[in-house]
Design a protein around this nucleic acid. Structure first.
Length: 267
DNA sequence: CGAGATGTTCGGCT
DNA sequence: AAGCCGAACATCTC
């Protein structure tokens, strides 16, 4: 479920708990999502602290608590956040539970590809502050994009879009959406994009991120009806533009869907 | 019942 | 030697 906008949506699920104390926590400490994490901080230090603020960037979330505590959450492939009534008994895959007086904040992740981290420090942790500039930010220029694509010239452009240091927050469906809108064949090599293709890739990357954040992130509502999004999971999907059947193949290591008629490899 | 899934990381190979 | 590729991680669903 979680790419850029879904991550932002999940972050908001814990908003009802802002400004309120954590009375106690419950964690499945031996699970993989806590690898490399000081679970003692979660089990002890968080007690009595208030949830002050939260933020999402790329596929990461950061929750700030009093006592200089910072909780980082990555949802992996199957993670999600939700709220249940106070005293809720965590279920099999509810690996982290924060109990407040009026509700329970939960993280569920069945496949355990996600990650939880905790740190105690004055300022936000380094892994957070060193995240790359958002695709929608002014720093994400055509120039920066061009340099990156040249450096990864032998990589299929689909694979390049999945590189988080260059397209923070963009995942598999967003990559397909961007390429479909930019009319670029996902198999085309990054180093061979024409100037026009580069400009379209830049524009559509920003557009897809912006609109996803304005729809999915807010209330999980659908992006516009003409997006590939609505057909890319159907067995016999057709291109929203020309109605020709979508192609399916593994590109850049992931299942990729595109329209062979309007996404042409150019040289 | 087997294949595949909206993600990351590691190890091997070029 | 940077960088590409496939495998592994763990569980559920179609």
């Amino acid at each position: 479920m979680p790419e850029l906008a879904e991550v932002e949506f999940n972050r908001r699920q814990w908003d009802p708990g802002l400004g309120e104390k954590i009375l106690r926590t419950s964690i499945h400490a031996e699970k993989r999502i806590f690898r490399g994490t000081d679970v003692a901080l979660l089990e002890e230090a968080l007690k009595g602290q208030k949830l002050l603020h939260s933020e999402a960037r790329a596929k990461q979330m950061l929750f700030h608590f009093s006592g200089d505590l910072w909780l980082g959450v990555h949802l992996g492939m199957t993670g999600h956040l939700r709220v249940e009534p106070p005293g809720f008994t965590p279920e099999k895959h509810d690996h982290l539970a924060l109990f407040q007086k009026r509700r329970t904040l939960l993280l569920r992740d069945s496949r355990l590809f996600g990650r939880v981290r905790v740190e105690q420090c004055r300022t936000p942790p380094e892994w957070w502050t060193s995240l790359p500039p958002a695709v929608t930010s002014p720093e994400w220029t055509q120039e920066v994009l061009s340099t990156f694509l040249q450096r990864r010239g032998k990589l299929a452009v689909k694979g390049a879009i999945l590189v988080q240091s260059a397209f923070p927050g963009v995942g598999n469906w967003m990559a397909d959406e961007i390429l479909w809108r930019a009319r670029i064949d996902p198999r085309q090599l990054s180093g061979t994009l024409t100037r026009t293709q580069l400009r379209r890739l830049w524009e559509e990357s920003r557009y897809v991120c912006e609109i996803a954040l304005a729809t999915i992130a807010v209330d999980y509502s659908d992006p516009p009806a003409d997006w590939l999004f609505h057909v890319r999971w159907s067995r016999v999907g057709r291109c929203p533009r020309d109605k020709s059947p979508l192609q399916t193949a593994t590109v850049g290591g992931r299942t990729t869907r595109w329209c062979a008629r309007c996404q042409k490899a150019r040289k």
